Computed example of a mutant assay.
Amino acid sequence: MECSLTADLNHTVVHASDKQASAEFLAGVLGLEVGAPFGPFIPVDTGNGVTLDFYAAEGPVASQHYAFLVPDEEFDTMIDRLQAAGVTYYADPHHTEPGRINRLFGGRGAYFDDPDGHNMEIITRPYARPA
């Protein structure tokens, strides 16, 4: 069966206990801007046109995973921002290798938690998948 790509992710909601603080945290790590409030959302636009809409959660926040493809030349700066904020980063998604990065698929990557425990990931190369 032939597949043509006809859909792009436009936006997604990120539940947060403090939507402003969570948006500012992620934007700060990634070097992005926090947008003006849009209805109940605090938006952060990524470089590929996807908007993360931070939304005030009612009750506990369920941890999600968000991965960001970042330029290799910005990776060290992002790690430095995490360290300056006192945030531990890890080489693996299960957070068993603190203070280390991975080198999967010829790139570099790291995982870290946002203020609500979302498992954030920065990678410099997309993961290779079999065709």
Score class of each variant (00 low, 15 high):
1 M>S: 13
4 S>W: 02
4 S>F: 01
5 L>P: 04
6 T>P: 06
7 A>F: 04
7 A>Y: 06
9 L>Q: 04
9 L>T: 09
11 H>S: 03
12 T>R: 00
13 V>F: 00
13 V>W: 08
14 V>C: 01
14 V>Y: 08
14 V>R: 03
17 S>Q: 14
17 S>R: 12
17 S>T: 15
17 S>N: 10
18 D>W: 07
19 K>P: 02
19 K>I: 05
19 K>M: 00
20 Q>V: 11
21 A>K: 04
26 L>I: 09
32 L>R: 11
33 E>L: 11
34 V>Y: 03
35 G>P: 08
38 F>Q: 15
39 G>N: 05
40 P>N: 09
41 F>G: 03
45 D>K: 15
46 T>I: 07
47 G>A: 12
47 G>Y: 05
49 G>K: 03
49 G>P: 02
49 G>F: 05
51 T>N: 03
53 D>W: 01
55 Y>R: 07
62 A>G: 03
63 S>M: 13
63 S>W: 05
64 Q>M: 15
64 Q>C: 04
66 Y>R: 08
69 L>V: 11
69 L>K: 11
70 V>R: 12
72 D>H: 13
72 D>K: 11
75 F>E: 00
75 F>T: 00
76 D>N: 01
78 M>W: 07
80 D>K: 10
80 D>V: 00
80 D>S: 14
81 R>A: 15
82 L>S: 06
82 L>I: 09
86 G>I: 02
86 G>K: 06
86 G>L: 03
88 T>N: 02
88 T>A: 12
88 T>C: 06
92 D>M: 04
92 D>T: 07
94 H>Q: 14
94 H>A: 08
94 H>S: 08
95 H>N: 02
95 H>M: 10
95 H>I: 02
95 H>C: 02
95 H>L: 12
96 T>P: 01
96 T>K: 12
96 T>M: 04
96 T>N: 07
99 G>M: 06
99 G>S: 02
100 R>P: 06
103 R>F: 14
104 L>Y: 12
104 L>T: 09
104 L>M: 11
105 F>V: 10
107 G>I: 06
108 R>M: 06
109 G>T: 13
110 A>T: 10
113 D>Y: 12
113 D>Q: 15
114 D>M: 10
117 G>A: 08
118 H>L: 01
119 N>S: 14
120 M>P: 00
121 E>V: 09
121 E>S: 06
122 I>Q: 04
123 I>H: 11
123 I>M: 12
124 T>G: 05
125 R>L: 08
128 A>W: 13
129 R>K: 13
